[in-house]
Design a protein around this nucleic acid. Structure first.
Lengths: 114, 114
DNA sequence: TTATTATATAACTATGTGCTTATATAAGCA
DNA sequence: TGCTTATATAAGCACATAGTTATATAATAA
C-alpha cells in the first residue's frame, strides 16, 4: 500500500474539518504557498476573528503550522501531519484558488517578508 | 488528469457528509456489498430512525441508491455520482469494516434475498 | 382481514458550529 | 513612551446537526 491506513476517528475528524468551504479553500491556497491571516481575511471578505478561528481549528488538528515573521503570522501546510497524504489527495479534487492570490497581487495586498 | 475536477461547493458538501463517523462507516461498508437498514441498525447499535436519517442524507446527495427487495430496502454505493471518484479515494483511507459484517454473520443476522 | 416486520417521516431536544462584537496580546514605529 | 497594525481569544447569538420518541407507510404472513 502506498499510504498509511488512517484511524477511523482521525479520518472522519479530518473530513469534518475540511467539510467547511472556508477551511477547504484555505488548505487549497496553502497547498501552493504560505499565507498570513490578513491575506486570508481579504480573500474571504470576512472578519479577522473568523479567519483566526478557522486557522486555530486547522492548527489544533495539526494540519497547518504557523511561522511568525515580524508582526505577521504565516500559515502553511504541515507536511508531517499523519493526515497529510489524505489531505493532499482531497485537495486535488478542489479547483485551483490561485486567482484569489492573483487578485491580491493586483490590489497590492500581498505580504512578503524577505 | 485521471479524474473530474470537482466543484468547490460539491467537494466541501461531500466532505461534510462523510465527516460523520456513522456515515463514513456506512460508505466503507457499502464499498464491499449492499446492506439493508436493519443490518446497519445492528452494526451501529443505534435506533432505526437514526440510521434511516443518515441514509437519507447520503441518498439526497446522490452518494447511495436504494433497492427494495420485498420488505427490505438495500442500500448501495451509487457509482454514477459525480462524487464517486472522490469518495473512492477517501474511503481507501478508512480501515476495513468487514469485521462488522462478519459479526452479523456469526449472529445469523445477515439478510439475504435470492 | 388483522398482526407483524421493515422502513420512513415528523416533532422535539440537546449539542455543536460559525459568525459577530469586544477585548487582549504582541510587534513595529514615531 | 505612546500609537498603530496584526493576530488571538472570549462571550454571545443564530443556526445546523444528530439523536430521541411517536407515528405513518409498506410489505408479508396468518
Amino acid at each position: 500500500m502506498s499510504f498509511e491506513m488512517g484511524d477511523l476517528d482521525e479520518v472522519s475528524q479530518t473530513l469534518k474539518l475540511l467539510g467547511d468551504k472556508t477551511r477547504l479553500t484555505i488548505m487549497k491556497l496553502l497547498e501552493k504557498q504560505e499565507c498570513c491571516v490578513c491575506e486570508l481575511v481579504e480573500i474571504f471578505k470576512t472578519s479577522q476573528p473568523s479567519v483566526s478561528q478557522h486557522l486555530r481549528k486547522l492548527k489544533d488538528a495539526g494540519l497547518v503550522k504557523e511561522n511568525r515573521k515580524g508582526q505577521w503570522i504565516f500559515y502553511s501546510i504541515n507536511p508531517n501531519s499523519p493526515q497529510h497524504e489524505l489531505i493532499q489527495q482531497l485537495i486535488a479534487f478542489v479547483p485551483s484558488q490561485d486567482h484569489e492570490l492573483e487578485e491580491l497581487d493586483k490590489k497590492g495586498l500581498r505580504i512578503s517578508c524577505n
